[in-house]
Design a protein around this nucleic acid. Sequence first.
DNA 1: CGTGGTGTC
Length: 748
Amino acid sequence: MAIQKHTADPKSQRANKRKWTNLDADETPNIEHKSNPQPNAPTKTFNHHKTSQAPNHLLKRRDELLLSRRALPIWPQAEAIRDELRKKNVLVLTGATGSGKSTQVPQFLLSEKWCKKCIAITQPRRVAAISLARRVADEMGCLFGSQSPAAKVGYSVRFDNATGPNTKVKFLTEGMLLQEMLRDPLLPQYSAVIVDEVHERSVNVDLILGFLRTLVDGPSRGGKRKIPLKVVIMSATADVEALVKFFNESSESERKDDHDSEKSGPGKSPDDETSPHEPTKSLVSTCFVEGRQYPVKTIHLPEPSQDWVESALKIIFQIHLKEPLSDNKPGDILCFLTGQDTIEALEKLVNDYAEHLDKDIPKLQALPLFAALPQHAQQRIFQRAPPRTRKVILSTNIAETSVTVPGVRYVIDCGKSKIKQFRNKLGLESLLVKPVSKSAAIQRTGRAGRETEGTCYRLYTEEGYKAMDERTTPEILRCDLSHALLMMKARGVDDVLGFPFLDRPPREAMEKALMQLLHLSALTETGSISDTGLKISRFPLTPTLGRVLVEAAVPERDCLLDAIDIISALSVENIFLNLVSEERKEEAEVARRDLFRREGDHMTLLATVRRYAEEQTDRKAWCERHFVSHRAMQNVMDIRKQLRQQCTQLKMLASTNNSSKPSEEHTNAILHCILRGFISNTARLMPDGSYRTLMGNQTVAIHPGSVLFGKKLEAIVFTEFVFTSKAWARGVSAVQLDWVQGVVEEVM
DNA sequence: CGTGGTGTC
């Protein structure tokens, strides 16, 4: 979530307030709460870690914050949490929104005797890592990040490492911890790793859990670390059992290795390993903490509805006309829809109807919210509505986890979301509208009870709710596994089929990914990682894009800088703005004409990145003139810089062939590199004018957003293959059929 | 002939 990233203005009070929109602690510090302070609470740690330089205003702020910390539901559990971790190495902690777990648990552990080194705490999103670090530093009364070398709290996210030699609490994104695990498998710099938001079950969290499982035991139990690592797994949903089982199984097998290594053979059930005299003692502690949430009344439809836009419209006006709007209580509506199209349709309807409201009734303001929306438009949800106006935020599931919308009292939930699913057989992703899970529905409902008691209107029946899956299918069960498996291979996991997965992906999916890696020459025939594979794994890229990069560095190709520009542009969301009206589209076409290249989208991206990079006076204005997303281009430049640095470090960037007007020969070299990474994403023109993939004979169409849309070309290569209403090729370049056949023969 | 839920290294 990038809402706050480039716009937060430290000088503005409003911006300061915004930083906290993603915290799950202390968002409602002024509500009445029975405080239950512990006499030997973590205040002790302040003395222990007190720095001589801590300025007075920081200490004053620390003492003020202590009051609200004491009111957090997790506060009374501090001693119990410390106690459990003294006895056992793993703690599974369940705590709903508002329990204070993300900010308090690291502070509870700092003063422990076993805590000699740093505590890592992972977050799925960058903004959360940064804002939590800032908050914890405030609470501890110290500077944070790179403000001072003495800072005890820091964070590490891509493009921004704000840690120092004295960092004791380090918030970092899951991706960053994985990178550290690749470099230093035993994590010697940490005494504890806290994995937060595990219930979201990102692929990265699943990999982290698998890797951590082998680290929790000390040498006496077969672990490779001298001092065992303490691990805290934090989740908002009560999926404790699976996690406890997961971590107990590891210790079980390690003890087996210790005690009867010669006896154990295949086919033995794990039950046989435990001594009959003493039942297996769990090596995992559990702890449950209440959340802090106001009650929400949930209302289902009596009959199923097909048309959510219409049903939502009715309910919006029903709420608006019946429920009073007061100045000092939240009364805004948050409506969950599936995508930009439904959001914009409903936005128009709400605005049309709102025009005809009686003059004595408060106004309605419809605000769309989705990730592709420009920054300033997203920021509107944080601004106060004009007087006597009710906001209606029409959102994708971005408001489910990534953005906390303030002032909401009513939630309307269509009960669906777009879900990406990788299809092994076709090797493509589908983006389909599917019912959400019960836990997602509960999460959406909860958004009505953040500030006061609220109401949730579900655009489905109670039976519909009961029929939903309990939990959202973990991402690792529905994604392309090639990146995950390459990470595992790079970390020395030879037998990826035997890797400890919390949820094991189907064998077919893993085999498909292994084949893919083999075709990329990232693995050798025997399945071990190749030099090429090792190189690819070092880059923050998918294996396919990584392969393009490696290919571009070989002397015959010699087009690395161009490849980096293209890859950077492919790594972010669409850099060309999405325009709705026909008029604007024509306008954009004219403005972008000098950027478009007949070779296709990749050379067009290259031209765009080049022109943007060359623009020295006003890049933002340049973007506006060309209908290009400035935010996306800033991300492109960050990635470009990082990739150039990494290539220099790996000594891949020897030549500086960087001609601004590439010759045909040079263009062909670039396209050959793309072909090398995306050989399975190639198609040829059929006599009937359609395209069929060379591997798989699947019909594809060039996406309407491509510069080659509607063109008839001998053969194409594409970097994205998505199924929505039909199979689309996005990111398309024209190539010669004999090139494609040449690479296919070389690889297969 | 017609379109992209949300993150991350």
